[in-house]
Design a protein around this nucleic acid. Structure first.
Length: 426
RNA sequence: GUGGGUGUAGCUCAGUUGGUUAGAGCGCCAGUUUGUGGUACUGGAAGUCGGGGGUUCGAAUCCCCUCACUCACCCCA
């Protein structure tokens, strides 16, 4: 194909039917799933003050390299959100809702990075957050909730990884210890891991570079430095997940991309994805986040899950598409003496019947072929009887039965009459 | 930011050592059919061969540049 003059920007994609129908269905199911657990829908602006994001991820690529930030007309520095949690936390501080505050979102995020399978510059996440409770049951509720959501979609091949980073003091203390250790073995690390030692030493733990593995394997382990209370908390979360019947794998090298996490962190991977990005959802606890943004000390926990990656995983597991575009009825017209279908179509819609017709074909055979695309419940044949223009034949696609309906002689009542017949049958 | 792969019709792709007017399947349009159910047959429309430059009598094919897409690294959902 010759490239058109304009196409969507790199890593940003159009969403068209029928894929868009499946997308809406996915979001709707998420809404119902977390709605049942008491989570309300939240929307925050796509643009925020740059510092909202910068405060919470100083050492991370997400905010240092990949942010779409720019100077606004009034000179202020703003950014397209690279993730949602920071904006939701800002909103929490601004409105001070009753706690525990449980919200879910479906939002687009922007990261200026090179694209690959399951990785886009504009990507979409479903997520849920809870602010104002440090109860470990919330951690459990979110993790189990997300797992069950995936299962309800038909995903089967899932792996749950969890880890604990301890509280902030633990984390800071361990981070220093790790930095000291790694600095003394800096020569044995892969060059591209060396710079991370100062900036974000936890990140070295999950390196994929084999050259660094021996050093990392002998590094001090975070789990050995957790306090009694940290360990208790971690045990509660693990046993809660276990009681829900979900296989859980402790991964001591699991750290996360954003550095506001404390205590629980987790990821759910799709084992069906052969691509480099198999994590479809992840999150954890961020007890210091609200405070870092200038709010009162408030615990929080949440997750984000990539919609595009969920859909990739569904395809990889060969799950049938979640939704199909379907109409109640499709109108086929016969011959030159056929009444004009326009009024009937518009009238049926006013009476709550989803209906369409073929506009580019006049051969009934072609129209019938067209109707198969949209999987209507009923096919309505208009103008079939030359001597009785007010009679239509209705074909129920479910059981292949057909019958005639006399619409009556008064044009203004015909749509209502037919709508009644279809609704009774439906 | 770094590296690999791929660009030919709406889609998926053929296209020989460079050689007439660039092909197929699917899809689309129409007909066989004043007619109606996933079939069959017939015909039709549709391509600046991603773009630019070069070599050549001659380029989809060879060379250079460029753009786009894609996969991977980094990183992340």
């Amino acid at each position: 194909m010759a490239q058109p003059k304009f196409q969507s920007l790199k890593g940003m994609h159009d969403l068209l039917p029928p894929d868009s129908e499946e997308w809406l269905e996915l979001v709707d199911r998420f809404r119902q799933h977390f709605g049942r657990a008491g989570y309300g829908y939240i929307q925050t602006p796509i643009l925020e003050d740059l510092d909202v994001f910068a405060r919470v991820g100083e050492g991370t690529d997400v905010v240092t390299k990949e942010m779409y930030d720019f100077v606004d007309k009034d000179g202020s520095t703003i950014a397209l959100r690279p993730e949602s949690t920071a904006g939701v936390a800002r909103s929490f501080i601004q409105h001070r809702p009753l706690v525990p505050w449980k919200v879910w979102y479906s939002s687009q995020h922007f990261r200026h990075e090179n694209t690959q399978a399951g990785r886009y510059r504009q990507h979409h996440q479903l997520g849920a957050e809870c602010f104002g409770s440090d109860h470990s049951d919330i951690d459990i509720e979110l993790i189990v909730g997300l797992w069950d959501f995936y299962r309800s979609l038909g995903l089967d091949r899932l792996t749950l990884h969890v880890n604990s980073l301890g509280d902030r003091e633990t984390r800071v203390r361990y981070q220093e210890l790790l930095r000291t250790y790694l600095s003394s073995h800096i020569e044995d690390l892969h060059p591209s891991d060396r710079e991370k030692v100062q900036r974000n030493p936890l990140r070295v733990l999950d390196t994929k570079l084999s050259e660094s593995q021996p050093v990392v394997a002998r590094a001090p382990r975070l789990v050995d430095h957790l306090s009694e209370t940290d360990l208790d908390r971690f045990e509660q979360v693990k046993s809660g997940i276990d009681r829900a019947g979900i296989p859980v794998e402790v991964n001591p090298r699991l750290v996360r991309g954003l550095d506001y996490y404390t205590h629980t962190v987790f990821e759910i991977m799709s084992d069906a994805l052969e691509t480099a990005q198999s994590t479809i959802g992840g999150g954890g606890r961020y007890d210091g986040l609200v405070e870092a943004l200038g709010g009162p000390p408030t615990p929080g926990v949440g997750f984000g899950s990539g919609i595009e990656r969920i859909l990739l995983a569904l395809r990889a597991e060969k799950v049938e598409p979640l939704a199909r575009f379907a109409l109640d009825a499709f109108i086929v017209t016969f011959g030159g003496g056929c009444p004009d279908p326009s009024a009937l179509v518009l009238g049926l819609r006013r009476h709550g019947i989803g209906v369409d017709r073929a506009l580019n074909q006049h051969n009934p055979r072609k129209q019938t072929e067209r109707s198969r695309r949209v999987h209507p419940r009923f096919v309505i044949r208009l103008g079939k009887y030359d001597d009785r223009p007010d009679v239509v034949e209705v074909a129920d696609q479910r059981d292949d039965s057909t019958w005639d309906v006399d619409l009556g002689p008064i044009a203004s009542e015909q749509a209502a009459n037919l709508a009644d017949v279809l609704k009774r049958r439906r």
